[in-house]
Amino acid sequence: MRFTSLAELLAMNGHGIYVWSSYGISVVLVVALIFGSRWRFVRWRQTMLQQRQWQQRQQAHSTADAQE
């Protein structure tokens, strides 16, 4: 360990703000990318599932009508 205390690690001899903000911004960007893509896919999946369910119900109705 190069740093003896947490305060020293955070300060990084006066360069802490640059180091930690660059790590923080990078993490935020990557997390936004991952969750943004996941959210878009989940939304697509939801609409497809609803569409599929609706189709299945239509089919069930039409077969029931045919049987009557």
């Binding site: 190069r2 690690l9 990084m12 001899n13 360069h15 802490g16 640059y18 180091v19 660059s22 790590y23």
Partner: peptide
């Protein structure tokens, strides 16, 4: 971040 030595010119900012 924790174990590499600091740069002799740039100090700890080189950890970026």
């Amino acid at each position: 971040l924790l174990f590499a030595p600091a740069d002799y010119q740039q100090g700890d900012s080189f950890r970026i």
